[in-house]
């Protein structure tokens, strides 16, 4: 037997490894730009979480804001909640979308952990979430004063993420 043949498994594995490597790269979901960036916020007619008053897209306009998609069933939302509270204390406008959730639970949550939101859009069926292309909570959108989405972040919001997003936020007065 020639020694060259013994290299066949190695070469086969190298090809396979390359295939895996190139595939993983394509699967990287975090860096996928949202197709909604640069688009107006999708129109909606829904109710507010706490007051149950009607609310529509126009409520978002006027001042730049963060739109935060959250739910009580989502542990990561719990993790980012304290940070949202801090942002709210710093005077940053945050609107919540309570996504595929129950009113009572959401109410209890806001009472227990504090309420950083100017108001919450109650989206029990996930209709608005569908329009926004939400994969799962939490997700946060930066929306400018004319109601256009400027950035999107999938996953929890924390100091490190905010550092990157803050420039966009400051820039979209």
């Amino acid at each position: 037997m020639k020694r060259v043949f013994l290299f066949i498994p190695l070469v086969a594995f190298a090809v396979l490894g390359l295939l895996f490597f190139l595939t993983i790269d394509r699967e990287n979901k975090d860096v996928l730009p949202s197709p909604l960036v640069g688009q107006p916020f999708p129109p909606f007619e829904m109710s507010k979480l706490l007051t149950e008053e009607a609310v529509s897209t126009s409520a978002l306009q006027g001042k730049p804001l963060l739109v935060n998609v959250w739910a009580t069933w989502c542990p990561t939302c719990k993790a980012e909640h304290a940070f949202l509270n801090m942002l709210a204390e710093d005077g940053i406008r945050i609107v919540g979308i309570n996504y595929k959730d129950e009113r009572d639970k959401a109410h209890q949550w806001l009472t227990a952990y504090g309420n950083p939101y100017e108001f919450n859009v109650f989206d029990p069926e996930g209709k608005l979430g569908l329009d926004l292309g939400v994969y799962g909570a939490p997700e946060t959108f930066l929306v400018d004063s004319s109601g256009v989405i400027r950035a999107k972040h999938v996953g929890d919001l924390n100091a490190a993420v905010w550092q990157k997003l803050e420039a966009t936020y400051q820039g979209m007065k």
């Binding site: 037997m1 020639k2 020694r3 013994l6 290299f7 498994p9 190695l10 594995f13 190298a14 490894g17």
Partner: peptide, 16 residues
């Protein structure tokens, strides 16, 4: 895997 296959290619007996 790569390392072990390399060792294999270099060291496996070639004598029948």
């Amino acid at each position: 895997v790569g390392g072990s296959l390399l060792i294999y290619a270099l060291k496996a007996p070639t004598v029948a």
